[in-house]
Nucleic acid binder design. Structure first.
Lengths: 196, 196
DNA sequence: CGTTTTTGATTGAGCCGTCAATCAAGAAAA
DNA sequence: TTTTCTTGATTGACGGCTCAATCAAAAACG
């Protein structure tokens, strides 16, 4: 057998190249050739490993979601209080590597792709639900069940909103301000709904 | 001269067809033929009136922004208090015709297109700045200047966030809940920062 | 240890379909 | 008739994907 285990390395390289290429282009209109060339291989090899451009995109998206998920999990494990765990999620969302403009650009293009692709939507929903559950679980220890749901929705929306604005508006606030504002919103909500 | 004024009608029809087609597809990957066919004309005619696919998209985007802008202006004109004017902006954002799933889809695709197209980004920034100014202007009559900026950013982000989630997440809250949550956030901020 | 075989890795060339854009000719209004 | 409107046909470019062929490492064998 020849150089076994090349597959994993190749796939990894291809996925990373795809994310960079997509991020730079700000769209999914990147050719398989472009991606393959950046990963240092031929377009044919890309098809050999992924079967189709579509599958390649899905792999790239799974990778992005996994990175974010890992980051959240890591930070949550370190936290010791409910409030700390909520903060962990917020921190993860605005960590430098997540909030990098090109990563956000890639993220956004995948987000919008969910409008077309069933499979992409499925992946996205999965991530969204998990995030929501995490938030609600911790919030419930601080406020009532109904409030927890609402606050989680509000926080998630605000985070997404700042993401999108960060990606494409020059005068959008930086990540420190943004984090502060989200936390501020959280505290306003908690102050009102706190269990006595 | 033949059929005077055909140009305006044709352009209008084409723009509307483009928005519907884009909204349904959930992407800008729609062919000129598709759009033209829906508008009841030949692809060649589309090029005759717009010069290029790109120009057609820009026209469509201007149209979307104009509809929203008109809606905001109309509602603000009816309002008589600063708080009323802020509510007007929020209401406009979640009005049924704006919050229709396909319109939101078209909106989103244009939003993301700003990552690629300079001209699109320019248009978007223009709209965003105007919205921001409107918000800040009214907020300033209720709170201090610094708070006004921050609250405006927060409101705008939350609105965008609910938009995107509405478009592609099944379990996202409906427009009434969403509106209530945004207004609730506004009131929380005002309650804390109110000028005495 | 050398030879042969096996088998995944890799690619260049090219097919096939699509689509934006063009153009020249026909239709319709003035 | 003249001017604008409109279109079918065409073109040129491009990109996803396939395939036959080659390469090279590892394993099997003697």
């Amino acid at each position: 057998m020849p150089k076994i285990g090349a597959a994993t390395v190749r796939r990894q390289a291809m996925v990373e190249a795809a994310i960079i290429e997509i991020g730079e282009a700000g769209s999914l209109d990147v050719t398989v050739s472009q991606i393959a060339r950046r990963a240092g291989m031929s377009p044919a090899l890309a098809h050999h490993y992924f079967g189709s451009k579509d599958q390649m995109f899905l792999a790239a998206m799974r990778h992005i979601l996994k990175l974010y998920g890992d980051s959240v999990r890591r930070r949550m494990a370190e936290a010791t209080t409910p409030l700390g765990r909520i903060h962990a999620i917020i921190e993860a969302s605005f960590a430098p590597d997540q909030f990098d403009r090109e990563v956000v650009a890639a993220w956004l293009t995948f987000y919008v792709r969910a409008l077309q692709s069933e499979e992409t939507r499925r992946l996205l929903q999965l991530y969204a639900r998990r995030l929501h559950s995490n938030l609600v679980f911790s919030l419930r220890e601080l406020v009532g069940a109904g409030s927890a749901q609402a606050i989680a929705q509000g926080l998630a929306a605000m985070i997404d909103g700042f993401y999108i604005r960060h990606a494409l508006q020059d005068f959008a606030p930086g990540k420190d301000e943004v984090r502060a504002m989200v936390i501020d919103y959280l505290e306003l909500c908690l102050a009102r709904n706190a269990r006595v």
